[in-house]
Design a protein around this nucleic acid. Structure first.
Lengths: 229, 229
DNA sequence: GCTCTTGATCTACCATACAAGTCCATACTA
DNA sequence: TAGTATGGACTTGTATGGTAGATCAAGAGC
């Protein structure tokens, strides 16, 4: 056999289910499928050129997170945003992430601590340029790094699952440069408290940060009441 | 039309997927499928007399909770118990349930407050008789009622998903009557703190209760190291 | 003896076909 | 006109066949 053109291909082909799940998740968060939208398994299947099965399995995963609601024999629809649900999302995320920073004040992986600095630098630069996408990505990296630093990646997965609802709301609230700047500052405050090994301050900093994120929820509710239930 | 024999049948036939999911979940928690067991879609399908599809969907749900691990093209196996994972389970449950009792100290649904008394009575009676099953059921009802009382059923769902791991470990630790009695007392202490509107005491009572549950983890780890990773 | 190939045999994954429940517009009836 | 069947066009749920990837053991070649 002469000169195989293709490498042994050790890369793992992502399964159709995984792809569809991720695509749908992003589409819902970005409000390309607005709350209340009817999703037909067949429709989505033909849209992504796969059979109904992977779509169906993706919808099961998304329904566990609470992004869609499957009504047996009737249909599947993108869940509307409910203030009652959002309250619990905030409570849950606050509870989990304050637990993380509390542990971070006791001991924190030094390697990850170092990487956080570069994340914050990137984010600060993006804030100065008003680069919304980079800001958001860095925000996720930051919170993820906090969890990794205390060896809590399973808790981070839980946070991700509730965070997705907050992200959907954030897509409704246009972020101005000022609030971007505030975001970075709040991140710095959290890190400072951790470095100082001050649990109370870290707790307060994290709570302040998280409520800030949904400051504009009431305004959005008034403007787009059709997205809420 | 004469006397229709069958009622309009408003009851919803539980789908095969739901049934299999629940059966598997219980079987894993009860260690009928011990940690490390290989689960084949086809095998389980024939065991429950359904096709592979419902089984597959059930396994997807269980893998999201972390009870099974799906290795693409290789197999599915019941996850082993890892101390690293259990640490996070405890942290997560503590974080969520202390958040619940904190809110319960502010305001708590009076109807549900009343129902808690009867739950505790049932549990106390079961403890006296050493009725393990009733104790466990009442325990779940108690914690669930706390969440409902502050309108946090979504958080309760999250608690259930992590609690399942603790339940699996508890099936390894034989419960003596003394520890049953302690359990009921701890429940009473939590309720008393809530009634007194004392957040600090409620917080401490809940944490004490939750760490108690896994007091015997180290002993079990030594005895059944094959269940751990 | 050791490495590599090959093939049998597992697995999860995906596509397709069928079944069953729900909804709705239409037509029929009183 | 109001009310009630009824059939069809949806929906999700289930069953089954086939495919690709992973593993492992036996055997060929060095």
């Amino acid at each position: 056999m002469q000169a195989p053109l293709a490498a042994p291909i050790p890369i793992r082909m992502p399964s159709a289910t995984r792809v569809v799940t991720e695509e749908l998740r992003q589409a819902i968060v970005r409000l390309e499928f607005p709350p209340g939208t009817r999703l037909s398994e067949g429709e989505i299947a033909s849209r992504y050129n796969v059979s109904r099965q992977p779509v169906r399995e993706a919808l099961i995963s998304l329904s566990r997170i609470g992004l869609v609601q499957v009504l047996p024999q009737r249909g599947t629809l993108v869940t509307r945003i409910s203030t009652r649900h959002m309250k619990q999302v905030i409570i849950a995320r606050e509870a989990l992430e304050t637990a993380v920073v509390a542990r971070a004040c006791e001991r924190f992986d030094p390697m990850i601590r170092a990487s956080i600095d570069s994340i914050l630098e990137t984010q600060a630069r993006a804030a100065a340029e008003g680069d919304h996408l980079t800001i958001t990505a860095a925000d996720t990296q930051f919170h993820g790094a906090l969890a990794s630093g205390v060896d809590c990646d399973m808790i981070w997965q839980m946070v991700l699952d509730v965070k997705v609802h907050m992200d959907r709301v954030r897509h409704l609230t246009l972020q101005d440069r000022e609030s971007m700047r505030v975001l970075v500052q709040q991140h710095r405050a959290i890190v400072a408290a951790i470095d100082a090994r001050d649990p109370e301050r870290a707790d307060r900093a994290m709570r302040t940060h998280l409520v800030e994120i949904l400051r504009d929820l009431p305004r959005v509710l008034a403007e787009r009441s059709d997205y809420f239930e």
